[in-house]
């Protein structure tokens, strides 16, 4: 059989679009649709309620609290995570003996899943066997209950999330730093710039496309992939103080069987991510300074 070259690209794209249509586009459409209906807990009947689900969400304390928690969670984890990662990348951007080994080791949290990160930190922060808890006792003479009191539980999940994201961020930052021509720094040195000046006047501006990309990637991972760490560390508690929006969707749908509420919450999440995707395509397209 001889295929006209005209049709080949469509055939090549067919599997990808088939999968994505059935398992992303159609569910996205369904989310919007389901968010406008009220479904009985066992899915036996449904009726159209318009924006009632959304109105109820904004009146329910649980949802508002989850938005608030997500906001704090994202700002802290993305902000602190990126600063630490950038500093580590600057340290790693050096030609000293053994630097390859340091890079490999500091990249390695990338391989750690959010669930593993959650368990590791739950262990370090646990009251009896936890080394970090013990450190707090001998150094600060306090014995905080990390996973069961507010706001420590939220901080504990944040620590696990920041730690887990560092590998990915450092890989990116280091690639970015290596792409900045050494001559820029040499010229600045001749002009009498000090290290701090060079960092803020050369490094940061030239890294800005990478910083922008990483902010969006980190928001996505903090909003969504932190779920596993929360699930193993605190299960959303104490008193819902670690219940992020994603955790709230899970709870509404799989514990309270409240399909309508869960759907409207996912629609809000989809819209938020659509907004960030739009920002990315609008402003992130400017040339990245690699090579």
């Amino acid at each position: 059989m001889i295929l006209s070259r005209k049709w080949i690209p469509y055939l090549l794209l067919a599997p990808t679009f088939l999968i994505i249509s059935v398992f992303i586009y159609y569910p996205a459409y369904q989310s919007f649709f389901m968010s406008l209906y009220k479904v009985s807990p066992f899915g036996t009947s449904s009726r159209f309620v318009g924006f009632e689900n959304f109105l109820q969400l904004f009146q329910s304390g649980g949802f508002i609290q989850s938005v608030y928690t997500t906001l704090i969670f994202v700002i802290v984890t993305v902000g602190i995570g990126l600063v630490i990662s950038l500093l580590l990348a600057v340290l790693l951007n050096d030609k000293i003996p053994g630097i390859g080994i340091f890079r490999t080791l500091l990249f390695s949290p990338y391989a750690v899943s959010p669930a593993v990160a959650g368990v590791l930190w739950a262990f370090l922060l646990s009251p009896v066997s936890g080394y970090v808890s013990y450190l707090f006792l001998i150094v600060l003479k306090i014995q905080p209950q990390w996973l069961t009191t507010y706001p420590l539980a939220l901080i504990a999940v944040m620590i696990a999330t920041i730690w887990q994201n560092i590998g990915f961020n450092v890989i990116f930052f280091l690639a970015g730093l290596q792409s900045i021509p050494q001559s820029y720094y040499e010229a600045a040195t001749i002009d009498g710039a000090n290290a701090v000046n060079k960092f803020f006047r050369i490094t940061i501006p030239l890294l800005s496309p990478i910083i922008f990309f990483l902010i969006i990637m980190n928001i996505s991972s903090s909003v969504f992939y932190s779920f596993a760490a929360i699930n193993v560390m605190t299960e959303g508690g104490p008193s819902n103080t670690t219940t992020t929006m994603m955790y709230e969707v899970y709870r509404e749908r799989f514990f309270y069987f409240n399909n309508g509420a869960a759907s409207s919450e996912s629609v809000i999440l989809i819209l938020i991510m659509a907004f960030f995707t739009y920002l990315y395509f609008k402003f992130g397209q400017k040339a990245v300074h690699y090579q």
């Binding site: 990808t16 569910p27 989310s31 899970y250 989809i270 991510m273 995707t277």
Partner: peptide, 21 residues
């Protein structure tokens, strides 16, 4: 059309309708 999905983890964000499917 493909790239609007790049920051949307289907296993998370689509959990409710995907589960129904």
């Amino acid at each position: 059309l493909l790239f609007v999905t790049i920051f949307m983890p289907a296993d998370m964000i689509m959990i409710v309708p995907l589960y129904k499917l």
